[in-house]
Design a protein around this nucleic acid. Structure first.
Lengths: 112, 112
DNA sequence: GGTCCGATGTCAGCATTGTCGACATCGATG
DNA sequence: CATCGATGTCGACAATGCTGACATCGGACC
């Protein structure tokens, strides 16, 4: 397995969504967050595959929700980004910042 | 063929490098720019494949360099990002901006 | 109790994207 | 002519992304 320096497009967004959701980062919430904030729609299958791969790479870990499993079906899984996951997000963000730098005339002003 | 809303990780960086290089966006220069600014190394094979795919998608066009072909070998190709390419870059940047928003405490302050 | 529904998770298979390495072209240089 | 450097091409394979169908199980409804 190649040890990539940058997260893929989906990986990056999923990692960010998990960070944003904090204590509430379970799969379906991630899907809704991505859709809401980025207009990025992801099917459950695609998401779970990505989550598994990122777990294998050490970008995140998960725990099954213990408290209040009053919902039916499978127990819910809660995801957490590891320091390694945060690190790769930083690397990626810095690279993009540098590439974007100076291109505002073409890409439009940065919101905020 | 699925009509994706976002560029892939490599596509995005390549598109940005081309914009930065302006009149000088030929393959080897793109590789150097990506390495220099983003620390992203790409082999020629990988780059050409990506360029071909993006041309098929309408993100860019190219022209063979006419003036001063005093170099040996194949004629050099110059790449240009199309309005559609710029548009997808905007979409991507806006989505990331929103996902990053508020995460500075975790990801660190944004340089510039 | 039996049925159906909704929220979860799993999986096989295929499509797209990313990587590498070997090969080809051709002017310049020695 | 032999070699080198800058370019481009290609085939094969690895990694990533996507879809649809199936499985689980508590609640709501009758």
């Amino acid at each position: 397995m190649v040890d990539r320096l940058f997260p893929s497009e989906l990986e990056q967004m999923v990692l960010l969504a998990i960070l944003r959701l904090g204590q509430h980062a379970y799969a379906l919430a991630i899907i809704r967050e991505l859709d809401r904030l980025a207009g990025r729609s992801v099917s459950r299958g695609a998401l779970y595959k990505t989550l598994e791969r990122m777990e294998a790479k050490g970008y995140l870990v998960w725990s099954t929700e213990a408290a209040t499993p009053d919902r039916g079906g499978h127990p819910r899984r809660l995801f957490t980004v590891t320091p390694m996951g945060v690190e790769i997000l930083r690397t990626s963000r810095n690279a993009l910042m540098r590439l974007w730098d100076g291109l505002d005339p073409i890409l439009g002003e940065r919101p905020a």
